[in-house]
Design a protein around this nucleic acid. Structure first.
Length: 276
DNA sequence: GCGTGCTCCGATGAGTAA
DNA sequence: TTACTCATCGGAGCACGC
């Protein structure tokens, strides 16, 4: 039962489904058409505000006033992410979290993610692209451009169910699973199902003592997930077959078919280019 | 060929219910 | 305290336009 899901999205139409009535293994098989065509565009006050209203992107330090308290009776909610990303470990002065001086003594430097060699100081020789907002530096312009979206007020991908905005299509896709109940990652030992692979791996490790071991940077086998019914396939062919059989009118099917056709066309022998 | 954007993915950690 | 959900963000591969 996605507990947080039940309490966090009281205004989302689909969230009113009583998921607890279903076992985990069945939740993944519920058909919720993803092509809502705007029928679920009813704006949820809170997430929609996060997505549509002008956002205060000010990096709040310890001295900044807290956000206004929620009205009485309002459902519990997380700190407003768009105001300060929960993972953006930002502090307003030269002291980091826990009273520890910021790395390099650089005040107001943004968070430093796992293993990042960048602690917000001067850009390294191999990372000449620096974020003007949080001073993080990157080795490639495109990485900086992508990072700048984190500070942007504009969220390009809006959830059709709750209106919440995301910078990344995959993040949106993953978020939509919280509405549709799609749980593609199923535990083979207890039939529990999860929306994210990390959740499944955590479950396997803690509950069953099964640690997934992958070599450094080894890619997991790609799992093709049908976001309409939660069906999964190990290959694109299998995914296409599933779509043809179960969702013949899915726009995703047309898109994938075009891709497959293009790939097939590219694989065909081409006439030798004319000699120069 | 190169640069850029798009997309997929994993790592991470805050928040929540049991 | 534990198990779990879910959002955020960086890394990397691919597609596309120039």
């Amino acid at each position: 039962m996605p507990r947080a899901f039940l309490v966090k999205k009281p205004c989302v139409a689909t969230a009113r489904r009583n998921w607890s009535e279903l076992p985990d293994e069945q939740r993944a098989d519920i058909y919720v058409p993803i092509c809502l065509g705007g029928c679920a565009l009813r704006r949820d006050p809170e997430p929609a505000a996060a997505a549509a209203a002008p956002l205060d992107m000010t990096l709040r330090g310890p001295g900044c006033p807290p956000p206004p308290p929620a009205p009485p009776g309002a459902p519990p909610r997380r700190p407003p992410g768009p105001f300060l990303h929960p993972k953006a470990k930002v502090w307003g002065g030269p002291w980091g979290p826990g009273g520890v001086p910021g790395p390099g003594g650089v005040p107001g430097v943004g968070g430093v993610p796992k293993g990042s060699p960048v602690w917000g100081g001067l850009p390294g020789p191999g990372e000449p692209f620096r974020c003007p907002v949080c001073q993080k530096s990157f080795g490639f312009q495109r990485m900086l451009n992508r990072h700048l979206k984190c500070h942007s007020e504009v969220k390009r991908h809006l959830c059709p169910y709750c209106g919440k905005g995301f910078n990344d299509t995959f993040d949106l896709k993953r978020h939509v699973r919280t509405h549709t109940g799609v749980r593609p990652y199923k535990c083979s030992l207890c039939e529990k199902a999860f929306t994210q692979r990390c959740s499944l791996e955590s479950h396997l490790k803690k509950i069953h003592g099964v640690a997934q071991r992958y070599a450094y940077k080894e890619r997991r086998a790609k799992l093709y997930v049908c976001e309409e019914c939660g069906g999964t396939a190990d290959s694109q062919d299998g995914h296409l077959a599933h779509l043809r059989q179960r969702h013949p009118h899915s726009p995703l099917l047309a898109k994938l078919a075009r891709k497959a056709a293009a790939a097939a066309g590219a694989a065909l022998p081409r006439p030798a280019p004319a000699a120069p």
